[in-house]
């Protein structure tokens, strides 16, 4: 089982959710929107690069029509290994967290 860090999990979830529109800025905005965490573009791309080298995501450069608006984007997709790793990580957390959420809330609220 591939070990995934917390930030890697966030990125993989974003890639999964964004489907065909998963590129750096979209992922960054998704993370910021859902978690409130502000991360740099550099952090997104270096992490995606690492995940790609591990075979968890694949990438392709979006071909834009010549003379069309915008610059080329690098789009990412979750690969089966990445999906398995993310599923395992999520399941593990769910198993561990099972039934403790209310207790956690109680404790957190003092």
């Amino acid at each position: 089982m591939a070990n995934l860090g917390e930030f890697e999990q966030l990125i993989l979830f974003s890639v999964l959710q964004l489907e065909d529109g998963a590129y750096g800025l979209a992922i960054r905005e998704r993370i910021e929107e859902r978690t409130g965490r502000v991360v740099s573009a550099g952090a997104i791309y270096t992490t995606l690069g690492r995940l790609e080298r591990r075979g968890l995501v694949s990438s392709r450069t979006e071909q834009r029509p010549a003379g069309g608006p915008g610059r080329p984007r690098k789009l990412y997709r979750l690969r089966p290994d990445g999906a398995r790793a993310l599923r395992d990580a999520y399941t593990t957390i769910q198993k561990m967290a099972g039934g403790t959420l209310s207790k956690l809330s109680e404790l957190a609220e003092g």
Partner: peptide, 20 residues
């Protein structure tokens, strides 16, 4: 200072993020 194979995408994202 931003170098490497992903540099064009990062720079592009930086500008686009500023625009948004």
């Amino acid at each position: 200072l931003v170098r490497g194979s992903d540099a064009p995408f990062i720079l592009s994202d930086l500008d686009e993020a500023y625009g948004r």
